[in-house]
Structures are given as C-alpha cells and as structure tokens.
Design a protein around this nucleic acid. Structure first.
Length: 416
RNA sequence: GUGGGCGUAGCUCAACGGCUAGAGCGUCGGGUUGUGGCCCCGAAGGCUGUGGGUUCGAUUCCCAUCGCUCACCCCA
C-alpha cells in the first residue's frame, strides 16, 4: 500500500468501464439526434482564459484551480470547466464565421483542487453541451431537453429539474443592487457565513440553512419582481415548451450558478440519493462570454452533466465480462492447434478466451463458468488423436463431438 | 481551508487490555486421473496504516502523523 493515486483522482476499474461506455454512447446518440457536433479541446489552457470568463472572485478561480508556471514562464491551468476553453476554440478558429449557429458537445475530465467527498473529486468528468449564436427560447429548451433525455434513457428516476431566470445584465444589475442594499441593512443579524456571502455572492444568502437567516430573507426583494419584460417573456416561453415536452420542472427563484458569466435561464437536475452533492446536471445561458474572451458578441447557452455523479446513481448496474467461447485446450499441442480457429472467430467479432496455463480440465471448466462463457470448446489428447473437438453448451449442458473440418462453421452458426 | 467518523487478509467485517489475531466472500488445490455452477475437505494469504507513549502484556487505552471517508464552504 505504498504508492497510491493522487488524492481526489480515481482509477476506473474494469468492472465499471462498461457503465462509462454506456453513458457516453447514449449521450452521443442523443447528440446525434439533435445534430450536435463533437469537439475535443486541450485539458490545459492559459490561466487568463479562466480568470476572465469564470470571474476573478469566484471560489473556482480564487482557490480551486490547478495552476502552475511552465518552463517558458507562462501561467497554465488544468481546466476547471469546459465552456471557457470551448469558447476560446470557437473564437480562435472563427467557427461562427461560417455558420451563424453552432451546436457542440465535448466529453472529458475537469480539475478542481477541492477537498474530496461523495460526488466530488479533484479530477471529475463532464459531458458538455454548448449552443452558440442564438438567444431564442427554443435553444434553451433543446439544451435542457438533451440533458433530460440522456438521464431518462439511462433509466434514472427520481430526478427533478429546477429552473430559474437570473435576468439579463440590465435587470440583473438593478436587482443585485437592491438586494445588496437590503443585505447591508440587516448585516448584523446574518450568520457569519452569510455576512461573507452578502459581499461576494449575495444570491447565495437565500440558501443558507440557518433558521434566523431564512426568516430575515423572507422579506428580501425577489429576483422575479425585477425581471424586465423581455426576460419574463423568455422564461415563459421556455417553460411553456417544457410543458409541451412533458418535462416536469420546479421553478426555484433562488437557483444561482457559481460562475459569473451566466445570465437569464439557469437550471439544475438534482437527485435525492446523492448526499450533499446532489446536482447531476446543470447549465444556463452565457450571452456575454464570447465577447469577454475576445470573440464576437454572440449569445450562447450550455450545460454540463457530471459523469462521476451519474455513475454513483447507476452503480447497481455493474457488470462482469461475458464471453462467447472459452477454449479448454489441454497441452501445448492442443493450444497451438486452435490458434487458426481463434483467429477466424475473433475476426468475426466473437469474444474468445483460452486458458494460458496448463491446468486440468476441471479448473478450466470452472474458469469458463466464472467468466460467463456460452460455449466451451474442449480439445485434449484424445480429441487431438481423433481430429475432433468437444463443443459444450454451458447453458443447457448439451455437448457433442465435431471434426476439425467442421469446427469453424459449427461455431459460426451457433454463436454468430 | 474547517469539523466529525474510520484505518485488522484481495473484498466486507469480528476479536472484554490477556493463549498461536478470526469469519464470510474471493483465489488456489483436492473429493471426481477429462467436464463448470451446488455440496464437502484443505491450503495460501496479516509488520492490525506509520511512529512514539502508558502497561507485566496493546488490534484494544493515550499522543502524533499519514491515508480514507462524510459534512461545512463551494460546486458537476
């Protein structure tokens, strides 16, 4: 137990890998049906990409980034989220010059230096979606729809969609200002955490667990009262579309995002069986971000699904290997005899396994049974002599002898 | 960064301060010389996380340290 993985970094072991593939392949097929294109971008970016987009005073930038100086003196950071890098790439390659709307996804690891706990790792994995170039309600809806569709196709139940509008930069600013004024007035009565929050991220004061804070906040100005007509209309169209799609939602007026660049529509999908880190998917609109990164002044909306958290919910579906044909060959000669057949079957796409070691037939049968083999091909001295094999069906226990000449086609027709 | 819980076999966990630290599962072998799952028998596998202290004696009590874990903060 001397050398271990770095804290908060996890190995994906063979018995879980099937699940990862399932999540990724369902996501890909959903994205295909929504006409999204995949992009792969670097895990490492210039640090300023993140400080400029996420916000200098967010927790992520202040204390959670894996930042270091490389040999040429540049400050680089392992990406704590995907949107900033994607926007950088889109802007760098002028992808929006060719088509006015871009619909992209990317899948991969993110890094944040936080204290690990259930559902929170230092290297975690996200499925990210970004729709850029439009600010219409249907684009918000499609982003939410995709997340919902993926989770639903994975068979997840008991998830709830919470949605809110943060307002556009204009009405949001007015609201923030009034909220701050209110908070300043009651500053003394807030708990210590909330006093800090009221300075850094005022909206967070709403979800304090402290009873006293809750009481005080009941009279605080509400975000929805400040939304301008445009923002109200936008939100209502989104909600109406969701209703038509029969995607159930709850309006959560206190729903806040951790990143500075979000505006208007914001949402989260949460599960009740995940412990404290209950958000499985989240996203929202980020209209000012492209411009902030030196790109064109175009709107965008996106979301991220936390794969590691998703897997926590799917863990019961873990699977072992299953193989089509196990070859119990006794002796070196027998093992060599079957090689050309194995080559054929493997090229046919069959999963074929042979024991590497000279073990007794009993041990090999046991291994075959454990591995979940459908058929076992037995080739010992006796069979070698008679130029035939025994082919055993492991499920109904039938077995019969087959000559060398017929073995390939016999297996092909049985298993293929 | 702060607080709680836990570190004993590959895994899940037992053992009042006292004999050679045990069990289930898994692995390997045997019962059946060449036929899996069930059953029976056996074997391998441990610096009890590490270092110190108290004690005649520590897996057990105390301190430190490292690790894991849950929670806070914050977030996917």
């Amino acid at each position: 137990m001397s050398i271990r993985a770095v804290r908060g970094f996890k190995d994906v072991l063979p018995d879980e890998i099937e699940l990862w593939h399932r999540v990724e392949s369902i996501a890909r097929s959903v994205f295909k049906s929504f006409a999204l294109e995949e992009m792969r971008i670097p895990l490492l970016e210039k640090t300023e990409i993140f400080t400029r987009s996420i916000g200098e005073f967010t927790d992520i930038v202040e204390k959670e980034m894996y930042t270091f100086t490389d040999r040429s003196g540049d400050s680089l950071t392992l990406r704590p989220e995907a949107t900033a890098g994607l926007v950088r790439a889109v802007s760098e390659h002028k992808l929006l010059a060719r088509s006015s709307i871009l619909k992209l996804f990317t899948i991969g690891p993110m890094f944040r230096h936080e204290r690990p706990q259930k559902g929170r790792l230092r290297q975690f994995h996200q499925i990210n979606v970004e729709v850029m170039g439009t600010k219409t309600p249907p684009s918000d809806v499609e982003v939410i729809w995709m997340a919902w569709e993926i989770l639903e196709r994975l068979g997840l139940r008991g998830l709830s969609l919470e949605i809110n509008s943060l307002g556009c930069p204009a009405c949001r600013a007015i609201y923030r200002n009034d909220l701050k004024k209110y908070l300043d007035g009651i500053f003394q009565d807030l708990c210590r955490d909330c006093q800090r929050r009221s300075k850094l991220n005022p909206l967070r004061v709403f979800d304090c667990k402290n009873e006293a804070c809750r009481k005080i906040m009941a009279n605080a100005p509400l975000n929805r009262e400040y939304l301008c007509t445009e923002c109200v209309n936008h939100l209502e169209k989104v909600l109406s579309f969701l209703k038509t799609l029969k995607i159930p939602f709850v309006i959560n007026p206190y729903l806040v995002r951790g990143l500075d660049y979000y505006v208007m529509t914001t949402f989260e999908m949460v599960s009740s069986d995940l412990g404290a880190q209950s958000t499985v998917a989240a996203g929202g609109r980020y209209d000012g971000l492209l411009k902030a990164l030196g790109g064109p002044d175009l709107p965008g909306v996106g979301m991220a699904i936390g794969i590691d958290r998703l897997l926590l919910l799917l863990e019961k579906y873990k699977e072992g290997p299953s193989i089509d044909l196990f070859i119990a060959a006794l002796g070196t000669k027998a093992r060599e005899e079957v090689l050309p057949w194995m080559k054929h079957w493997r090229r046919q796409g069959l999963t074929v396994q042979m024991s590497y070691e000279d073990r007794g037939l009993k041990a090999q049968m046991k291994q075959a049974g454990r591995a979940g083999a459908s058929y076992v091909l037995i080739l010992g001295e006796e069979e070698l002599h008679k130029k035939q094999v025994v082919l055993r069906n492991m499920i109904n226990h039938d077995q019969h002898e087959i000559t060398f000449d017929d073995v390939i086609s016999a297996v092909d027709s049985l298993v293929g």
